[in-house]
């Protein structure tokens, strides 16, 4: 029973993280914040996957979601690094750190 409620707690936290990330993505104009927001969204998903690895039936962890999380993190790191480099380049070219048509 305890693992079950813990699992639900993890799942709800992960959904909250996903929602917060999504909100921040639209609410803030600064590109670095947007990139961080996307990272928060993916963190939520990772937490969700980790929570699914715990089965209520036995003590064995399901290794597949854990492997998926590692893969997901590496993919996200690559995308984040590239995005930050692009923001650096944009800043270098125009001095802006936000997309031109965002008003805030």
């Amino acid at each position: 029973m305890e693992t079950m409620s813990l699992k639900i707690f993890y799942s709800l936290t992960s959904i909250a993280l996903f929602g917060i990330g999504m909100y921040a993505l639209f609410a803030y104009a600064h590109l670095l914040r947007k990139i961080l927001a996307v990272n928060i969204m993916f963190t939520g998903i990772s937490l969700f996957l980790v929570a699914t690895a715990q089965r209520s039936s036995d003590s064995n962890l399901d290794p597949i979601p854990l492997a998926l999380v590692i893969t997901g993190i590496v993919v996200l790191v690559s995308a984040t690094a590239f995005a930050i480099m692009m923001v650096c380049k944009l800043c270098e070219k125009t001095g802006m750190t936000q997309l031109p048509d965002e008003d805030r």
Binding site: F18, M22, M41, I45, A83, M86, L90, L99, P100
Partner: peptide, 16 residues
């Protein structure tokens, strides 16, 4: 580069 950043962010959200 602006277009590329917009594209990358949009499609990262899609991926999420």
């Amino acid at each position: 580069i602006t277009a590329a950043i917009r594209y990358l962010l949009t499609s990262l959200v899609g991926a999420a």
